[in-house]
Protein backbone atom coordinates (compact mmCIF):
# COMPACT_ATOMS: atom_id res chain seq x y z
CA UNK A 1 0.00 0.00 0.00
CA UNK A 2 1.18 3.52 -0.84
CA UNK A 3 1.81 5.71 2.16
CA UNK A 4 -1.28 7.69 3.05
CA UNK A 5 -0.60 11.30 3.89
CA UNK A 6 -3.62 11.73 6.12
CA UNK A 7 -2.83 15.32 7.05
CA UNK A 8 -2.50 16.37 3.44
CA UNK A 9 -5.77 14.71 2.48
CA UNK A 10 -7.61 16.19 5.44
CA UNK A 11 -6.28 19.64 4.56
CA UNK A 12 -7.43 19.19 1.00
CA UNK A 13 -10.91 18.23 2.24
CA UNK A 14 -11.06 21.35 4.37
CA UNK A 15 -10.01 23.46 1.41
CA UNK A 16 -12.72 21.84 -0.71
CA UNK A 17 -15.27 22.78 1.97
CA UNK A 18 -13.93 26.34 2.05
CA UNK A 19 -14.28 26.76 -1.70
CA UNK A 20 -17.74 25.24 -1.61
CA UNK A 21 -18.75 27.70 1.07
CA UNK A 22 -17.24 30.60 -0.93
CA UNK A 23 -19.24 29.59 -3.98
CA UNK A 24 -22.55 29.15 -2.20
CA UNK A 25 -22.09 32.28 -0.08
CA UNK A 26 -21.43 34.34 -3.19
CA UNK A 27 -25.00 33.61 -4.25
CA UNK A 28 -26.51 33.41 -0.76
CA UNK A 29 -27.74 29.84 -0.90
CA UNK A 30 -27.21 26.51 -2.62
CA UNK A 31 -26.87 22.75 -2.27
CA UNK A 32 -24.59 22.84 0.73
CA UNK A 33 -25.40 19.67 2.73
CA UNK A 34 -24.77 17.15 -0.04
CA UNK A 35 -21.70 19.03 -1.21
CA UNK A 36 -20.11 18.88 2.22
CA UNK A 37 -20.81 15.16 2.68
CA UNK A 38 -18.63 14.27 -0.33
CA UNK A 39 -15.76 16.70 0.33
CA UNK A 40 -13.62 13.97 1.90
CA UNK A 41 -14.08 11.46 -0.89
CA UNK A 42 -13.32 14.16 -3.46
CA UNK A 43 -10.13 14.98 -1.53
CA UNK A 44 -8.98 11.38 -1.61
CA UNK A 45 -10.01 10.86 -5.24
CA UNK A 46 -8.28 13.96 -6.59
CA UNK A 47 -5.58 14.10 -3.94
CA UNK A 48 -4.42 10.53 -4.24
CA UNK A 49 -6.38 8.09 -6.35
CA UNK A 50 -7.19 9.60 -9.73
CA UNK A 51 -4.80 10.29 -12.58
CA UNK A 52 -5.85 13.62 -14.05
CA UNK A 53 -4.03 16.57 -15.59
CA UNK A 54 -5.33 20.08 -14.87
CA UNK A 55 -3.45 21.32 -17.95
CA UNK A 56 -5.12 18.74 -20.16
CA UNK A 57 -8.60 18.12 -18.76
CA UNK A 58 -9.71 16.24 -21.88
CA UNK A 59 -6.81 13.75 -21.83
CA UNK A 60 -8.58 10.58 -23.02
CA UNK A 61 -6.66 8.21 -20.74
CA UNK A 62 -7.39 10.15 -17.55
CA UNK A 63 -9.49 8.70 -14.77
CA UNK A 64 -13.00 10.12 -14.84
CA UNK A 65 -15.43 11.33 -12.21
CA UNK A 66 -19.16 11.28 -12.69
CA UNK A 67 -20.90 13.13 -9.91
CA UNK A 68 -24.33 11.70 -10.61
CA UNK A 69 -25.77 13.67 -7.73
CA UNK A 70 -25.16 16.65 -9.97
CA UNK A 71 -26.37 19.17 -7.40
CA UNK A 72 -23.09 18.64 -5.52
CA UNK A 73 -21.48 20.66 -8.32
CA UNK A 74 -20.12 23.30 -5.89
CA UNK A 75 -17.95 20.66 -4.15
CA UNK A 76 -16.68 19.40 -7.51
CA UNK A 77 -15.93 22.95 -8.68
CA UNK A 78 -14.08 23.71 -5.46
CA UNK A 79 -12.00 20.57 -5.93
CA UNK A 80 -11.18 21.54 -9.51
CA UNK A 81 -10.38 25.12 -8.48
CA UNK A 82 -8.04 23.91 -5.75
CA UNK A 83 -6.21 21.85 -8.37
CA UNK A 84 -6.00 24.65 -10.93
CA UNK A 85 -8.48 23.33 -13.51
CA UNK A 86 -10.28 26.66 -13.10
CA UNK A 87 -9.23 29.88 -11.32
CA UNK A 88 -10.17 29.84 -7.63
CA UNK A 89 -11.85 33.24 -7.92
CA UNK A 90 -14.22 31.78 -10.50
CA UNK A 91 -15.99 29.87 -7.71
CA UNK A 92 -17.82 33.10 -6.96
CA UNK A 93 -19.53 32.96 -10.36
CA UNK A 94 -21.64 29.96 -9.31
CA UNK A 95 -25.04 30.19 -11.01
CA UNK A 96 -24.41 33.73 -12.24
CA UNK A 97 -25.69 34.52 -15.75
CA UNK A 98 -23.30 33.06 -18.34
CA UNK A 99 -21.26 31.18 -15.70
CA UNK A 100 -19.13 28.11 -16.39
CA UNK A 101 -20.27 26.79 -13.00
CA UNK A 102 -23.96 25.93 -13.11
CA UNK A 103 -25.81 24.42 -10.16
CA UNK A 104 -25.54 20.96 -11.72
CA UNK A 105 -22.36 19.60 -13.35
CA UNK A 106 -21.98 20.25 -17.09
CA UNK A 107 -19.15 18.67 -19.06
CA UNK A 108 -19.47 21.25 -21.82
CA UNK A 109 -19.03 24.21 -19.49
CA UNK A 110 -16.46 23.40 -16.82
CA UNK A 111 -12.91 22.22 -17.57
CA UNK A 112 -12.39 19.04 -15.55
CA UNK A 113 -16.05 18.05 -15.31
CA UNK A 114 -16.19 14.73 -17.09
CA UNK A 115 -19.95 14.32 -17.43
CA UNK A 116 -23.15 16.33 -17.42
CA UNK A 117 -25.52 15.33 -14.63
CA UNK A 118 -28.48 16.76 -12.78
CA UNK A 119 -31.50 14.61 -13.58
CA UNK A 120 -30.90 12.09 -10.81
CA UNK A 121 -29.97 8.56 -11.80
CA UNK A 122 -28.66 9.36 -15.25
CA UNK A 123 -25.00 9.62 -14.29
CA UNK A 124 -24.95 5.95 -13.39
CA UNK A 125 -25.57 4.70 -16.93
CA UNK A 126 -23.31 7.38 -18.37
CA UNK A 127 -20.51 6.24 -16.07
CA UNK A 128 -21.07 2.62 -17.07
CA UNK A 129 -20.81 3.65 -20.72
CA UNK A 130 -17.63 5.62 -20.04
CA UNK A 131 -16.04 2.70 -18.20
CA UNK A 132 -17.04 0.35 -21.01
CA UNK A 133 -15.60 2.78 -23.55
CA UNK A 134 -12.26 2.94 -21.71
CA UNK A 135 -12.11 -0.83 -21.59
CA UNK A 136 -12.89 -1.14 -25.30
CA UNK A 137 -10.17 1.41 -26.05
CA UNK A 138 -7.72 -0.61 -23.98
CA UNK A 139 -7.12 2.22 -21.49
CA UNK A 140 -6.21 1.49 -17.89
CA UNK A 141 -8.42 4.43 -16.88
CA UNK A 142 -11.06 4.08 -14.22
CA UNK A 143 -14.38 5.82 -13.74
CA UNK A 144 -15.49 6.92 -10.28
CA UNK A 145 -19.20 7.41 -9.85
CA UNK A 146 -20.66 9.32 -6.93
CA UNK A 147 -24.31 8.46 -6.36
CA UNK A 148 -26.56 9.92 -3.68
CA UNK A 149 -28.55 7.67 -1.37
CA UNK A 150 -31.68 9.66 -2.15
CA UNK A 151 -30.75 9.42 -5.81
CA UNK A 152 -30.81 5.66 -5.55
CA UNK A 153 -34.62 5.91 -5.33
CA UNK A 154 -34.40 6.18 -9.14
CA UNK A 155 -34.86 2.87 -10.95
CA UNK A 156 -32.30 3.72 -13.62
CA UNK A 157 -29.58 3.48 -10.95
CA UNK A 158 -30.30 -0.21 -10.50
CA UNK A 159 -30.54 -0.83 -14.23
CA UNK A 160 -27.07 0.64 -14.53
CA UNK A 161 -25.70 -1.42 -11.64
CA UNK A 162 -27.06 -4.64 -13.19
CA UNK A 163 -25.41 -3.64 -16.46
CA UNK A 164 -22.06 -2.82 -14.83
CA UNK A 165 -21.96 -6.18 -13.09
CA UNK A 166 -23.07 -8.06 -16.20
CA UNK A 167 -20.31 -6.45 -18.24
CA UNK A 168 -17.77 -7.06 -15.43
CA UNK A 169 -16.78 -3.38 -15.33
CA UNK A 170 -14.11 -3.61 -12.65
CA UNK A 171 -12.83 -0.22 -13.86
CA UNK A 172 -15.98 1.32 -12.40
CA UNK A 173 -16.05 2.34 -8.75
CA UNK A 174 -19.41 3.37 -7.32
CA UNK A 175 -19.23 5.65 -4.31
CA UNK A 176 -22.63 5.72 -2.65
CA UNK A 177 -23.00 8.80 -0.47
CA UNK A 178 -25.07 7.35 2.37
CA UNK A 179 -25.77 10.65 4.12
CA UNK A 180 -29.23 9.44 5.15
CA UNK A 181 -31.07 12.55 4.12
CA UNK A 182 -32.75 13.86 1.02
CA UNK A 183 -34.68 17.01 0.18
CA UNK A 184 -37.83 16.16 2.11
CA UNK A 185 -36.05 14.75 5.16
CA UNK A 186 -34.56 11.42 6.24
CA UNK A 187 -34.34 8.81 3.46
CA UNK A 188 -35.80 6.26 5.86
CA UNK A 189 -38.93 8.39 6.05
CA UNK A 190 -39.13 9.29 2.36
CA UNK A 191 -38.30 5.95 0.73
CA UNK A 192 -36.17 3.51 2.74
CA UNK A 193 -33.66 1.74 0.50
CA UNK A 194 -32.66 -1.02 2.91
CA UNK A 195 -29.20 -2.47 3.32
CA UNK A 196 -26.92 -1.04 0.65
CA UNK A 197 -24.10 -3.53 1.26
CA UNK A 198 -26.47 -6.47 0.81
CA UNK A 199 -28.06 -4.80 -2.21
CA UNK A 200 -24.75 -4.13 -3.98
CA UNK A 201 -23.48 -7.61 -3.19
CA UNK A 202 -26.67 -9.08 -4.60
CA UNK A 203 -26.20 -6.98 -7.74
CA UNK A 204 -22.74 -8.50 -8.20
CA UNK A 205 -20.47 -5.79 -6.84
CA UNK A 206 -17.38 -6.06 -4.66
CA UNK A 207 -18.71 -4.01 -1.78
CA UNK A 208 -17.33 -2.40 1.36
CA UNK A 209 -18.67 0.19 3.77
CA UNK A 210 -16.44 2.89 5.24
CA UNK A 211 -16.67 6.08 7.23
CA UNK A 212 -17.08 8.36 4.25
CA UNK A 213 -15.84 11.40 6.14
CA UNK A 214 -12.59 9.68 7.16
CA UNK A 215 -9.89 10.16 4.55
CA UNK A 216 -7.74 7.31 5.80
CA UNK A 217 -10.54 4.76 5.55
CA UNK A 218 -11.47 6.17 2.14
CA UNK A 219 -7.89 5.95 0.90
CA UNK A 220 -7.58 2.32 1.94
CA UNK A 221 -10.92 1.37 0.40
CA UNK A 222 -10.09 3.14 -2.85
CA UNK A 223 -6.65 1.60 -3.06
CA UNK A 224 -8.31 -1.82 -2.91
CA UNK A 225 -10.26 -1.01 -6.07
CA UNK A 226 -7.05 -0.82 -8.11
CA UNK A 227 -6.77 -4.57 -8.29
CA UNK A 228 -9.20 -5.10 -11.17
CA UNK A 229 -10.91 -8.47 -11.26
CA UNK A 230 -14.28 -9.24 -12.75
CA UNK A 231 -16.64 -7.21 -10.59
CA UNK A 232 -17.40 -3.51 -10.36
CA UNK A 233 -16.64 -1.96 -6.98
CA UNK A 234 -19.02 -0.28 -4.56
CA UNK A 235 -17.95 1.70 -1.56
CA UNK A 236 -20.78 2.71 0.73
CA UNK A 237 -19.79 6.04 2.23
CA UNK A 238 -21.26 6.38 5.69
CA UNK A 239 -21.36 10.17 5.74
CA UNK A 240 -23.01 13.08 7.44
CA UNK A 241 -24.92 15.48 5.23
CA UNK A 242 -23.26 18.79 6.05
CA UNK A 243 -20.08 17.18 7.43
CA UNK A 244 -17.32 19.58 8.44
CA UNK A 245 -19.58 22.44 9.52
CA UNK A 246 -21.39 21.33 12.70
CA UNK A 247 -24.26 23.82 12.49
CA UNK A 248 -25.07 22.69 8.94
CA UNK A 249 -24.75 19.01 9.84
CA UNK A 250 -27.14 19.49 12.76
CA UNK A 251 -29.80 21.03 10.52
CA UNK A 252 -31.91 18.17 9.15
CA UNK A 253 -33.21 20.13 6.16
CA UNK A 254 -29.81 21.19 4.83
CA UNK A 255 -30.21 20.07 1.20
CA UNK A 256 -30.51 23.66 0.07
CA UNK A 257 -29.05 26.02 2.62
CA UNK A 258 -28.80 29.76 3.10
CA UNK A 259 -25.31 31.11 3.72
CA UNK A 260 -25.57 34.77 4.71
CA UNK A 261 -22.59 36.93 5.66
CA UNK A 262 -22.83 36.06 9.35
CA UNK A 263 -22.93 32.31 8.70
CA UNK A 264 -20.19 32.63 6.16
CA UNK A 265 -17.85 34.35 8.63
CA UNK A 266 -18.57 31.84 11.38
CA UNK A 267 -18.33 28.74 9.18
CA UNK A 268 -15.21 29.99 7.46
CA UNK A 269 -13.59 30.68 10.82
CA UNK A 270 -14.34 27.10 11.86
CA UNK A 271 -12.80 25.72 8.68
CA UNK A 272 -9.77 27.96 9.04
CA UNK A 273 -9.29 26.66 12.57
CA UNK A 274 -9.39 23.10 11.21
CA UNK A 275 -6.80 24.03 8.63
CA UNK A 276 -4.62 25.74 11.24
CA UNK A 277 -4.68 22.59 13.36
CA UNK A 278 -3.66 20.44 10.38
CA UNK A 279 -1.11 22.70 8.77
CA UNK A 280 0.15 24.68 11.76
Amino acid sequence: MDEINVKKLRSFAVRIRMGTLEAIHSLGSGHLGGSLSIADVLAVLYGREMKVDPKNPGWPERDKLVCSKGHAGPAVYSTLANLGFIPYEELKTLNRPGTRLPSHCDRNKTPGVDMTTGSLGQGTSLAAGMALGDRLRGYSSRTFLIVGDGESNEGQVWEAFSFAAAKKLSNLVVLLDWNKRQLDGYTDDVLPMGDYVAKFNAFGFDTVKVDGNNVEELAKALERTRQGGDKPYAIILDTVKGAGIPEVAETVMNHSYTVDDDRFRRYMAGLEAQLQELEG
Partner: peptide, 20 residues
Protein backbone atom coordinates in the same frame (compact mmCIF):
# COMPACT_ATOMS: atom_id res chain seq x y z
CA UNK B 1 -28.36 -4.08 -22.52
CA UNK B 2 -31.39 -6.16 -21.63
CA UNK B 3 -34.84 -4.69 -21.23
CA UNK B 4 -33.60 -1.46 -19.70
CA UNK B 5 -33.94 1.31 -22.27
CA UNK B 6 -33.13 4.24 -19.99
CA UNK B 7 -29.86 2.60 -19.05
CA UNK B 8 -29.15 1.68 -22.67
CA UNK B 9 -29.46 5.29 -23.78
CA UNK B 10 -27.26 6.41 -20.87
CA UNK B 11 -24.59 3.82 -21.67
CA UNK B 12 -24.70 4.86 -25.33
CA UNK B 13 -24.22 8.49 -24.31
CA UNK B 14 -21.31 7.55 -22.04
CA UNK B 15 -19.72 5.73 -24.97
CA UNK B 16 -20.37 8.76 -27.19
CA UNK B 17 -18.50 10.97 -24.71
CA UNK B 18 -15.49 8.73 -25.29
CA UNK B 19 -15.71 9.21 -29.06
CA UNK B 20 -17.77 6.18 -29.97
Amino acid sequence: CGIAEANMVGVACGLASAGF
